[in-house]
Amino acid sequence: MTVAWITAALAALVWAVEQAAPGTLLQVNADHTLRPPVWWTPTAPLAAYAAMAFPRDGARPVWIRALPVAALLVPVGALGDVLPGSAMRQFSAQETDSIAALEFRSVFAVAVAALIGMYAAARRRAVQALTERAERAERERHLLAERARAEERARLAAEMHDVVAHRVTLMVLQAGALRVRAPDEPTREAAEELRGTGCLALEELRDVIGLLRRDQPAAPPADSGPLPDLSVLVAESAAVGVPVELAEHGDPPPASPAVGRTAYRVVQEALTNARKHAPGAAVHVDVRYRTDGVTLTVRNAAASREPDADLAASGSGMGLAGLRERVELIGGTFTAGPHLDGFSVEASLPAYVPVAKP
């Protein structure tokens, strides 16, 4: 709009000055050549196009944007009133047979440029509307998928709470009764171990149920505790002949129980996979503690011997996929893939995870 108004004002200024004092701005030499040439004809279409093609956000009506274009057409259409006839006859004879034809061509160029600008603006609005519609449809599809996922998680949580947790609770109670009534010490020890394992399973089950129900009102924050001691896993791997190096950086932050168990499972699964698929390979476990979480990296080198086919084929094959789901469930990130000549597993976990009441 600014460029269009300036162009219209300058064109009107030249016309007004030449009307009042001919020859002031447009002079004719002895050979009847015009100096300077007709300057506003090439600039006017560009100004008209810009005024119509680039409306501001919350655009002005078309008729307001067309005001400088209309003001520009007046002096352009009145060229014959201020241009010396002797010079224009020579100038027009090289291109057209009359001054009126030159005026018509100038007005036509400005009008066509304005129409093209209107088309460009309308096309841009249509493309923007289609883009917004596609983005809105994508957001709605994502919300529907999230709702379906939340409903499925709630159903799974209900099934786990009503069936699995109930059965495990019965197993813990029966193991406790067996410990009390067992006639010999080995049986009592086995019953106590079974009861402890069942209690741990119940705690982990409550964590999972709470995470699945995070769309419901959250429970009061559980007491944060230290992250689990990973040196036990390292010692277990070393005991079966896998050289494992553990490096810890920083101070362990207090973390939710669910985070601690997930960190333990990540390292455990990574070391198990290294034992199965890369026998004899050195494994490096890098643990970097942050104030807001922990980053775990487990890398192994290339296998020093062929893996046992039966051992490598054992398991469900869903270990890494299950880890990814478990890490993402508590708001972390998980990556796993080849690294140099070996394999790498990396997980970044937050320190605190809100859970709903199971």
Rank of each mutant, 00 (worst) to 15 (best):
L73W: 00
T297W: 04
L349C: 03
A235D: 14
L26S: 00
A274W: 01
R139W: 11
R324H: 08
G117I: 12
P338V: 14
A182T: 11
P358M: 05
R299K: 14
S304C: 12
E95R: 14
G176C: 15
L211C: 12
R65K: 08
R299A: 11
D310S: 14
L329N: 01
A50D: 07
C199F: 09
A134M: 13
I64Y: 10
P252Q: 07
P37K: 01
L323P: 00
D81G: 07
G196L: 12
V14G: 02
R123T: 13
S237P: 03
V110L: 15
A303H: 08
L200F: 06
W5D: 05
L130D: 13
R141G: 13
R275H: 12
G342H: 06
Y49E: 02
A137I: 07
A101I: 08
V180A: 15
Y119E: 15
G225F: 01
Y49K: 04
V38R: 02
L200E: 11
R214W: 09
F104G: 10
E151A: 13
L323R: 00
T96Q: 12
P75A: 11
A303Y: 07
A309R: 15
L230P: 00
N29P: 11
G241M: 06
P75V: 07
A270T: 09
L233Y: 01
M118Y: 12
D341V: 02
V3F: 08
L79Q: 02
T24I: 06
L156Q: 10
V62N: 05
A30C: 06
P186Q: 13
R265L: 15
H161K: 14
E189T: 03
V327Q: 00
T291F: 14
Y289F: 15
P55T: 03
L205Q: 04
W40R: 01
L83S: 00
V208W: 05
R65I: 08
G23N: 06
G77M: 06
H284L: 11
Y352F: 09
L323E: 00
A356H: 05
L26W: 05
V112G: 13
H32F: 10
Q128D: 10
A218I: 10
Y119T: 15
G196F: 08
A59F: 08
E204Y: 12
G85K: 07
A263T: 01
V74E: 11
R265E: 13
A336N: 05
D81Y: 14
G210S: 03
A70C: 15
T33M: 10
A137Y: 11
E192R: 03
V355Q: 02
A239G: 03
S348A: 10
A154Q: 07
V345C: 03
Q174S: 13
L296Y: 00
V74T: 11
L144F: 14
V3L: 09
S314D: 13
H277K: 08
E18V: 10
D223P: 15
P243C: 05
I116N: 11
E193F: 08
G225Y: 04
Y289P: 02
T333F: 13
V240I: 09
